[in-house]
Nucleic acid binder design. Structure first.
Lengths: 124, 124, 124, 124
DNA sequence: GTGGTCTAGACCACT
DNA sequence: GTGGTCTAGACCACC
């Protein structure tokens, strides 16, 4: 299931690292359910609290998503870009509602994109 | 500082209303710091908890903004828009880094802005 | 010391909120040391673990700074702006080292600052 | 995929060196995805842990970048500079919001850039 | 059944 | 002395 590495790091951090390693290795794909806290605790001979803390760390890092009563799941990055897009749309809507004209917003976006790509093109 | 009106409303609501009135009167401008909870409580002879609750309500309503250790400030809409701009820039950066080309992003922004202004124009 | 409010929220969150409230009220100034985990636990009749968790939450939120063996302290925001400045200097240094010319960097900074102040001036 | 050289060095170091050689040879370009730990382990008949350790070393050296659930990628310096730019923009926004005026910020940036280029010019 | 919270009590590294 | 970690065991809300 998971393999804990040796070291002086706290156990809960090593558990978190082991889960990330398993995800990197493709053992758990985006959207997959991870083994329950209790299952991991039993497997690694740890207290469930320790495993729960590891899972909480992973949730804060945005690696997994947890729902009480359902379990923990590997986050899906495809969804993330959609969220980024939605936030941009929402932001533009707010600026527009605040009185910015469409042409000004368009020009501003062009400026932002130019400054983003500027460095890349001038150094290549 | 603030003038409380009579009435049957809970005190914390009247405090909140008094703060909003002071802002409307221009006594406190956007970005200005409001007196501390303790100062208001001492002035109006109220329990600090009551004032704190009024400030909490104002924060939820988006009228003021509190930073721990710095104090409470009247929300500045210009600052808000600045944050919105920053989030859009960061979003575009992420999309660009995810492989979107500058021209595609520019076209996408144009499309978003068109759909934003279309709604307004078609309903008028 | 701290006053816990009622509610259904977990105790550790309410402890964190009480600490923030005390800081907002000026009871603890930036740089001040907060009472130790054990002292708060004894005062509020809680398990030290619960208080420790509240302090950890506050540390993650950037409200306090903790050093094992020394205690927890309210963060000083004046230091923060200095850190922001230092990060900008470091960033400019990196861009310069990557081959950007001084004039280009200066022009780029001007453009960034213009886009930041643009919204404010056009709406006022 | 990768060719391991003989020697007395630990296997994980030779794997890391092989990956770096492949990048130098242009087999993997900046931004390209590297084969998964499992794939490399299967190809070279190694324990996945060994390959994982090699990847970890490369990540610490700043040669590759791993995102959990997405895989490992050759670091793209253009992307790095983009992040640096974004952090500068965000920093300037914070200073502006903290009350610095545009002209002062512009002058400050000029000063920073002058001090950066001065060092270089005075030593040549 | 899931994870979240809280307590009690122990041990540790660090200052 | 400080906070950090871990265990054991209990109870809870939610699905």
């Amino acid at each position: 299931m998971f393999t804990l590495h040796d070291g002086t790091e706290p156990v809960y951090r090593r558990v978190a690292e082991a889960v990330k390693q398993a995800i990197r290795d493709g053992l758990y794909q985006p959207g997959d359910q991870l083994p329950t806290v209790r299952a991991v605790a039993a497997e690694l001979l740890l207290n469930p609290n320790t495993v729960a803390r590891a899972y909480q760390v992973l949730e804060q890092e945005g690696v997994i998503e947890t729902t009480v009563g359902r379990g923990s799941f590997v986050v899906d990055h495809a969804d993330e870009l959609e969220k980024v897009q939605a936030s941009i749309v929402e932001g533009l809507r707010q600026l527009h509602q605040a009185g910015w004209h469409r042409d000004d917003l368009e020009a501003w976006c062009r400026g932002v994109l130019r400054s983003l790509t500027e460095g890349r093109e001038s150094t290549r």
